[in-house]
């Protein structure tokens, strides 16, 4: 459903991505592993249109979407959960979710029950300000808000960052459930191997702005292969 070909992107004069190519099948969860500063976040930002690619092409379900604005991509079914959660601290939990409804195709104006069923903790805190939630709850809110837009493709940037292990585990389970129930396609950028192993159907490794290797689901359980791929 997503085909990226020879994508180049960067910040100003500084190139970060060099000819990145990858493709996602509908319903799979692709994990992108890599150390700090190899261009994982830049790749996600280019896919949602926040960074304009300098060359290459991005196709979504066969449509050329290279250079589209973020709001247009969001309406086309791409949801992006940035690193560091990116919720709106001054809005209540409910308002955060309401703002996320815009990209739905059905024009629904209220928070869908199934999203709240998935995240019961949010239902208890609907009138609380987003900024008063704990880090893990904020991450859950960010995921729920993205799901409110009824997306086809989920771009997740390090959801485990700075969150206690039990919540990371919960998020991993949630991703698997969501992926199974709604046939959502997920591109997950992670440094947490545990979460990657739990959620992935396959895995790519990035290094210095290039895709340097790939690992199957079974490879992920083989520590030697993982370390070799990550050049640790």
């Amino acid at each position: 459903m997503l085909d990226v070909e020879k994508l180049k992107a960067g910040y100003g004069m500084l190139p970060v991505l060099h000819d990145v190519s990858l493709s996602l099948e509908k319903g799979e969860t692709l994990v992108l592993l890599g150390r700090n500063g190899v261009g994982k976040t830049t790749l996600l930002k280019s896919l949602i249109g926040i960074n304009k690619p300098t060359s290459g092409s991005i196709r979504l379900n066969g449509t050329e979407v290279t250079g589209w604005a973020p709001n247009r991509l969001a309406k086309a079914g791409v949801a992006y959960v940035p690193q560091g959660r990116g919720i709106f601290p001054k809005l209540t939990v409910e308002e955060n979710l309401l703002v996320g409804l815009r990209s739905r195709a059905d024009g629904r104006k209220t928070v869908p029950e199934e999203v709240l069923d998935m995240f019961p903790i949010l239902r208890e805190r609907l009138s609380q300000f987003g900024g008063t939630l704990s880090g893990g709850q904020q991450q859950i809110l960010a995921l729920a808000r993205a799901l409110c837009g009824d997306p086809e493709l989920f771009l997740l940037d390090e959801p485990s960052e700075g969150i206690q292990p039990s919540i990371v585990q919960q998020i991993g389970e949630l991703l698997v459930t969501v992926n199974r129930n709604t046939n959502l396609t997920v591109l997950l950028v992670e440094q947490n191997l545990e979460l990657a192993r739990r959620a992935a159907s396959r895995c790519l490794v990035m290094e210095k702005g290039r895709i340097s290797g790939n690992l199957s689901k079974s490879d992920l359980n083989d520590e030697r292969k993982v370390f070799q791929a990550l050049a640790l």
Binding site: I50, P70, N71, Y80, F88, P89, R102, S103, R145, G149
Partner: peptide
Amino acid sequence: DNEQRAQALGHN
């Protein structure tokens, strides 16, 4: 709060 985030949620 953050225009880019609002845009990434589908708002023009």
